[in-house]
Nucleic acid binder design. Sequence first.
DNA 1: TTGCTTGCAAATTTTTTGCAAAAAC
DNA 2: GTTTTTGCAAAAAATTTGCAAGCAA
Lengths: 138, 138
Amino acid sequence: MQRRPQTRNTHQLQAVYQAVCQSSSHPSADEVYWHVRRNLPRISLGTVYHNLQRLVAQGKISVVLLGERTARYDPTTTAHAHFVCQQCGQVEDVFLSHTLLGIDLNVLARQGYRITAHNLLISGLCPTCGGRRSARLQ
Amino acid sequence: MQRRPQTRNTHQLQAVYQAVCQSSSHPSADEVYWHVRRNLPRISLGTVYHNLQRLVAQGKISVVLLGERTARYDPTTTAHAHFVCQQCGQVEDVFLSHTLLGIDLNVLARQGYRITAHNLLISGLCPTCGGRRSARLQ
DNA sequence: TTGCTTGCAAATTTTTTGCAAAAAC
DNA sequence: GTTTTTGCAAAAAATTTGCAAGCAA
């Protein structure tokens, strides 16, 4: 019942992985594609998608959905939340104390649910875009 | 600076709203479309999308993204989390004590962020699909 | 050599857009 | 009567799939 790794260490796979790791902006598949093309000009977008899926399946990267239609990829696989600024669109990792959230998730577990993952998306204005000052913006 | 409501109360708008409210499964636009078609056979999918956007803009329904490519619509607009069963795909509303989460969000606010919304998505196995029993499933 | 992986292109899926006709107010 | 809304179809955006050729092991 053991999963075959079935992963060949191709140049394309390495390049896709490094592109996600080097980016600090939670890149989309297309952004990874254009980044990788600088070193591997013949890589195709389909290959990028394939390798991103492979890396997600291996647990090396994670995929996050931030309220857009496009999936974004994240080299950080430990549990954390994401903040998206509604003005500049920037995405930031947020590390909250998950003990607090864990208390609530335990309530679900006691009801018979098995929790395997959770994603928290926070929207608002970052400090640069006027978060503090325009607190009454609505 | 006041926003014109500019909303005409058409049959299509009412039908779309009722379809979302009557469904307990967080329907996608396409599911709303097929439901509404039973009463309004000539409605188009584009009209369904238009009216869903209108209802979201009015705050009558909310849109949730649950890790799929398709957006889902929710008649519950108060803050709550969503549980998605990885096996049967069922979506359930989860009402956690947001005071706990609020404590952590206050940390962000103190750093200059302005929080306007947050979405929490929880994945796992529901009790029916073996949540409690297969706790060691991986 | 074996068969996973690539590149290319076409197909799919989901959502948006343009526009004339219909409906609401 | 005027302006929004509809229905239809085409376009756009994002991702998946099929397949012959290439490459890793």
